[in-house]
Write a protein that binds this DNA or RNA. Structure first.
Length: 492
RNA sequence: CGGGGCGUAGCGUAGCCCGGUUAUCGCGCCUGCUUUGGGAGCAGGAGGUCGCAAGUUCGAAUCUUGCCGCCCCGACCA
């Protein structure tokens, strides 16, 4: 049957695509490199978005919205940033179509409508936002400016992958302006903490917090902080970034403020973002060969109730009980679905919701009603147990918490098992090929060495972990002195 | 942009090498009955520009050429 999911071990890429398509999150679209996020996938994104948005607001940020188009002249103002994105920009050059005189029913670009200045479809919004901030900031009283936007961006990547790298994707980007360097750095770190907490607490996905090496830094940033997660095939995934931009953008867009002493200075900036890529991360972090595994805290459906009955008479009895149960769970704040669709049999539904990763399934039939119990199956362990109907909401809430914790613990122990120290080059190469995961090794701190390692092994420095232990040693490739280990991995 | 694979019904596919009536099978869909505690059974039915274009031929899903699109691997990539 076409509903079967390719095994993780057999073909990891196919497994990943199957999870997303057969789990009902998204589909390929008619547009090159783009995807359609289906209602189930979008509901997941909404849950993630709502939670993140709450956390942003708790840390003093407000939402706003800036234009999709960035005039080329603005885009090129911060040179490093512009250069970094130049190769992957979609560009609007015309604003009108007309009927093609040579081909009936066909349209063509009207050459008369050529724009005087090309518009870049934002790959990121620093340029348009900093151009706007220039008008908003005059005095220290206007600072800090703490703004986030939920938006779509376009990056014309050569090769795409569902959720992990699509030509258009949804994200949030925070852009803040501060009076001092210290404050901006603190903001950068604070938002990294917010991302880490979101990943670990809500996605149940352990992450490593760190700083990027110069090679991997965001174009235009002074420092790029990141959270890095490990996927089940041993490859690393950058799950979120928070950048300290220094005064680079303030200088490029001439954003100055008067301080209390009436001295003019450029403002200090940060930007930070996470995207629908997190959905890809979530999928790969927990799922198995049966399908998706959703963390209860974000699952669009936390509990599904499946009725089991013979004939109309039994259906009516089961319906009544199940609906009462649904109400009870709903009132306890659980996202619950009662699937009373009569077109599919229970076995089909079991498989379907497993594929969708619904954390808890409740089966209820005449037999259960007689005994005042239900059958409860959990997705993470596939365990089935009989629960008393009385006080069910409380026990389900406890079970959801347990599942959340269990999948986190499982992912974390996998991650811990896959951080390995390498002391020599041979060991490093062997670990990368055979064990995979993060390899902790000494590096001499130069971009050249990093490039060379990438060329030889395809591994990159994922990050220099925060609060990294200092130890004198030698670079695994060059033998030059090194004062700390960094984390290498092959990455998405 | 390089290497590999693919394009046949909503989905997954057989047929292609070696051209020949009406294009195969499964899922799904529709109708009916029986079913319903792990992807239901039987019976009947609907559904096709064989990716597009040109060529070869009496005849093309099948051979040739060109084009388009997709997937995987690489290059590329906060």
């Amino acid at each position: 049957m076409s509903k079967e999911i390719t095994s993780r071990k057999e073909d990891y890429s196919q497994w990943y695509n199957d999870l997303i398509i057969k789990g009902g999150l998204a589909d390929y679209s008619a547009v090159r490199g783009c995807m359609v996020i289906k209602p189930y996938g979008y509901a997941l994104w909404e849950n993630m978005r709502d939670q993140l948005d709450k956390m942003f607001k708790e840390t003093g940020h407000e939402n706003a919205y800036f234009p999709l188009f960035v005039p080329k002249s603005l885009f090129e103002k911060e040179e490093e940033n512009a250069e970094g994105f130049a190769k992957e920009c979609a560009v609007v050059t015309h604003y009108r179509l007309k009927l093609n005189p040579d081909k009936k029913g066909a349209l063509m670009v009207d050459p008369e409508s050529k724009l005087e200045e090309e518009l870049i479809i934002r790959p990121t919004s620093e340029a348009i936002i900093w151009n706007t901030y220039k008008g908003w900031i005059q005095s220290y009283r206007d600072l800090p400016l703490l703004i986030n936007q939920w938006a779509n961006v376009v990056r014309w990547e050569m090769r795409t992958r569902l959720f992990l790298r699509t030509a258009e994707f949804l994200w949030q980007e925070g852009h803040t302006a501060h009076a001092t360097q210290e404050e901006a750095v603190a903001e950068t770190k604070q938002m990294l903490e917010v991302y880490a907490e979101f990943a670990e607490t809500f996605m149940a996905m352990p992450v490593i917090k760190g700083v990027k090496s110069a090679n991997e830094r965001f174009a235009g940033a002074v420092d790029t902080y990141c959270i890095e997660a490990l996927m089940q095939d041993g490859k690393a995934l950058q799950a979120g970034t928070s950048h300290f931009l220094g005064q680079n953008f303030a200088k490029a867009f001439d954003v100055k403020f008067s301080d209390k002493q009436n001295k003019l200075d450029y403002v200090w900036a940060t930007s930070w973002g996470v995207s629908t890529r997190l959905i890809g991360a979530l999928v790969m972090a927990h799922s198995d060969d049966e399908g998706l595994v959703m963390p209860p805290k974000l699952a669009p459906i936390q509990v599904v109730i499946i009725p089991i009955y013979k004939g109309e008479e039994q259906k009516a009895i089961v319906d009544e009980k199940a609906n009462a149960l649904k109400q009870q769970l709903k009132q306890s704040g659980i996202r619950v679905k009662y699937d009373d669709n009569d077109n599919q049999r229970p076995g089909w539904k079991y498989a379907e919701y497993e594929m969708k990763g619904v954390p808890v399934r409740i089966g209820i039939g005449a037999r259960d009603i007689e005994n005042n119990v239900v059958e409860v199956a959990r997705r993470d362990t596939k365990e089935k147990k009989t629960y008393p109907m009385d006080g069910l909401a409380e026990s389900i809430i406890a079970l959801l918490d347990e599942i959340q914790l269990n999948i986190y613990t499982r992912a974390k122990s996998y991650r811990e098992d896959h951080i390995t120290k390498a002391e020599t080059w041979d060991e490093f190469v062997k670990l990368l090929d055979e064990k995979t995961g993060f390899i902790s090794a000494h590096w001499d701190g130069t971009g050249e060495t990093e490039d060379k390692i990438k060329e030889l092994t395809k591994a990159t420095i994922r990050c220099i972990p925060l609060n990294n232990e200092q130890e004198e040693s030698k670079c695994i490739l060059t033998g030059n002195p090194s004062k700390e280990r960094v984390l290498f991995a092959r990455a998405y």
